[in-house]
Simulated assay, not measured.
Amino acid sequence: MDEGALIEHIDALRRASVRPVVVGISGYCGSGKSTLARSVVAALPGAVRMRGDDFLDPVRSHRRSTDWDGVERTRLVDEVLAPLRTGIQSTFRRFDWARGELSAPEPVPATDLLVVDLIGLFHPESLPALDLTVWCDVDLETAAERGMARDRRLVRSHDEPWRQVWVPNERDFEHAYAPKEHSAVMYSTR
């Protein structure tokens, strides 16, 4: 599905729903999740993006794990997705990367369309809280090369974590949870 068709599909879901719609965008590190999420939110007035990086523990996300242990899916569901979908006002805590800890609670933005972009999102802990699942479809090697190039442009020295942690974590997560199979929409970022 191309971007225009995806935006039309999301808008139709939003108009047909009696409660807020949660769109989950996932894919490999470097696959274009954040870029797509920003485009969707820019195209649909009133939509809100919830950054996946706000739900990553910077220490645990730099360690090997078979289920992306550093992705705090339970916190995302409990603090943001479940309350939003049921119409309950709630607060959440972003991870403050500069301080290395959770920030002070802030209100979950009021919206009828929330777009979440996050690695490891299509997991049994969070799938029930997503109304539409979108996979940024590109092979792992290409995604990793793009991610490493992005990090170099941002003057981040992450080549070793990419090779030693993040790419192996992606392979393990794919083997254990088959995230592509839980995607209602395949969005090509090739």
Rank of each mutant, 00 (worst) to 15 (best):
L118I: 10
G46C: 01
C29S: 15
Y177E: 02
L114V: 08
R15M: 11
K180G: 08
V80S: 12
T111I: 08
G30D: 09
D11E: 10
F95M: 10
D137I: 00
T142P: 03
S157N: 14
R60Q: 11
H182W: 00
S61R: 11
L76M: 04
P109S: 09
D54Y: 08
N169F: 05
V165N: 02
Y177D: 04
V165F: 00
D172S: 15
E170T: 14
G46E: 13
V21Q: 07
A149C: 06
R99D: 12
C136P: 09
F55A: 03
H182N: 06
L6G: 11
H175P: 03
K180S: 05
E79G: 03
G120E: 07
P161F: 04
A110D: 12
I88E: 15
R14I: 09
A5F: 04
L154Q: 14
P161L: 04
G32K: 00
G4L: 14
L121H: 05
S17V: 01
E174D: 14
D67H: 02
E125S: 14
F173Y: 13
L114I: 04
S188E: 14
K33I: 01
V165I: 13
W97P: 09
D67K: 01
S31W: 02
R64F: 11
F173S: 02
D53G: 12
G27M: 05
V185Q: 01
A184L: 01
V40C: 02
R85Y: 06
V167G: 06
E181G: 12
V108E: 00
L56T: 07
F55Q: 07
G32N: 01
I10A: 11
S34A: 05
A104S: 15
W135V: 04
G4D: 15
T91G: 10
R146V: 04
G147A: 02
K180A: 12
T35P: 05
A98F: 06
R49F: 03
L154S: 10
L140M: 08
I88R: 15
R150Q: 06
H62K: 09
E101V: 11
G100E: 04
A37C: 02
K180Y: 07
H9P: 05
